[in-house]
Design a protein around this nucleic acid. Structure first.
Lengths: 222, 222, 222, 222
DNA sequence: CATGAATGAGGCTTCATTCAT
DNA sequence: GATGAATGAAGCCTCATTCAT
């Protein structure tokens, strides 16, 4: 690291930020860290960024826009809900593996943004999730999917993507295509199988019996 | 809040910490914040805690131990893999809804711990995940489950639990039991459905074609 | 300097600030300077002040309130405009000599305040000046004063006070009482003298002939 | 503003500096501000100035030299002290209104200069003030003026000029000639009237009774 | 001449922690 | 137990200045 000068400083800062925000979090990352990684003095960063938070925001908004663009492109030409859902899931998971760090940052650092910027990101995120959910609902409407909770199903897709972004590594035992395909399989199996095997257990009473913390006031990440 | 004095100060600090770590994150939470919430001056906190990090650690380890205990209790008496998996999932999801804040903290603040303490938490977490995974593998071995990727299936359970902890609210439209049951349904269908629905799409080439950030060095949360 | 500890730290900070703001100006004064003068580390200042600007503001508003109170007290019992004006001038000049540093800061650092706080100070200042001007105008109305420009006369009083605050020293050749009395004499002569001495010279054309900078947009200090 | 390129850049910088030093003060003015106003990037300023402080110094010394030259020219041909004093005052006030910003800077930013440059400016200022004071003293010696404190009288002239430079605006209700003439009137009335009407009030004891800050160490502006 | 980028010094402020009272 | 005050480390950011292009 610490290669001297060059016009690529801005990009190096961005990469260093992605790495460190992913690894240590936004709050725990100092501009000193980034400057050191890039091989520049702290003050010099400001020739390329306007503030630490703006740097975070630009990473988050870019990755979300790319994710949306990827989904739009992937869905082109597909019409059957089952096919569209598989495509969407594969695209979602693949993207979350491929751009893991940025996507992870996007999911975990919303609370580090000031309200205005946070609202922008939330809007992008909600638009994306809404699109996925619409596919699920269309499959339900057409009778192709049996699973009765489209909101929870959509959440499952989102949750799995987020989780993938936290552990996927290109040099791991499964390729990006394998992970994406396997999770598409899992979720489509769940959507298509009409029978619930095994009756509910009775663990809920036990869990609720414990004394619990008071009710959450708000989600931490919007 | 801000209840004065009394022997419950320590508990009030703990609750304030859970709320604030959940809402703003550990790094963004100030001891001044907690003191203010409890109605005490900063210095007084040290009559009840030994350090900020120790406070985090105790929250994280307690919730993980409780989760483990809950699972152990719930599984008592069940033997068939299908039944055991349903019980485990319901227990997992219910706990993640019930103790959402603490569990969310446990999943997101690993990186805020110093290595020694982090190792302790990771061990607890891994033991728990291993236990869930074992159930999945037993179902596979016994031929009850068709889904071929036990590791990914386990991850899916974990991922959905984490996600639930970020949005579940006791006053929401779904009860804790409904959420737990619905997700158990979803995951059990996936495990039992013998057929793979819909052929893979071909989105992967497109996703990989984009220029990607360099390979991750390490997971953010150990 | 640098006396250790003690409950008088807050007052020592205030005194150090008055000295340094007077001597070097607010912008040129660093908190390091003040801390050094007080014998404390920089961060410790924040146990006593909430911000540098608030420190400035409190000095400015206090001295203005004291000035106003002094004038009110001094005018009690006097009714004739000539007497009232003499009392006001003596009080004004004496206060500006006595509290020279603070008053000097009050006159020169308005522009260092953020708009809200600046507005507060300006209001105090304007109320005071208005009161002085009213005395001048009453003398004019009653026929005691001949000088025809009450606004300019009031300005002269203000200007002389400000100037005094920049040079008066208690160990100088003139006592506080002598300065106050001498300036009261000067200004009362000007007000009472019915004749205009000496015809105007004709220097104005020459001055205006020079190329001048463009018109001011706003006074620097409100 | 922001006129592009050309050989007038140096002059534009000077004007921007005069405006901003007047409005916000030297310390609070950024080279970035000036560059922005001129329509140039920061680094480019150094093709026209050698340093920020040198820019301040050149503004201050120029205006003082111009003031001196104006006074010399104005006094040519006048011999009687009363006439000479009126001419000097009118010239002084007119110049302070006409070149208000620069003259204001000259009076308020002495402390922003390093010792060597400050000494130069102080010398120019003292020479000028000495010349005015000499006129007052000659009038006293010749018996034309009655006011017994030539130093304070000179200070009054200076103070009023400084004050005028802080509020005079060419589009105000009084013309430059009117202000200059009115203040010459005021001061000459004060110098010629032998009687002090109204006995001193007794406010001084009250003012001194207040607790006061410690004695000033040095004037803020030399 | 103008520019973009680098630099070093420094500015204000926050924070976890300690400790005498 | 609670408090106010002190501390040192560190954080983000700004600025005048330099210099290669």
């Amino acid at each position: 690291m610490a290669t001297r000068g060059g016009p690529k400083t801005a990009e190096a800062i961005r990469q260093a930020a992605i790495d460190s925000f992913f690894l240590h979090g936004y709050e725990a990352t100092t501009l000193r860290d980034l400057a050191g990684e890039v091989g520049v003095k702290v003050g010099s960063l400001y020739n390329h960024i306007s503030s630490k938070e703006e740097l975070l925001f630009s990473i988050m908004s870019e990755v979300l826009r790319d994710l949306q663009a990827e989904l739009d492109r992937a869905l082109e030409g597909w019409t059957a809900p089952s096919e569209r859902l598989r495509v969407a899931i594969e695209c979602h998971i693949a993207f979350h593996a491929h751009r893991a760090k940025e996507v992870f940052i996007g999911n975990s650092e919303l609370r580090s943004l000031a309200p205005d910027r946070r609202a922008v990101i939330i809007e992008l995120r909600d638009a994306y999730e809404h699109q996925v959910r619409t596919i699920v609902e269309e499959g339900q409407a057409s009778g192709e999917f049996y699973y009765p909770e489209p909101r929870l199903a959509t959440f499952a897709i989102v949750a799995i993507g987020t989780h993938v972004s936290s552990w996927y590594r290109p040099d791991g035992s499964l390729s990006l295509a394998e992970v994406a395909s396997a999770y598409a399989d899992l979720l489509l199996r769940a959507m298509h199988n009409p029978e619930v095997q095994v009756a509910p257990g009775d663990v809920l009473a036990a869990v609720e019996a414990d004394n619990a913390p008071d009710a959450p006031e708000a989600a931490p990440a919007g």
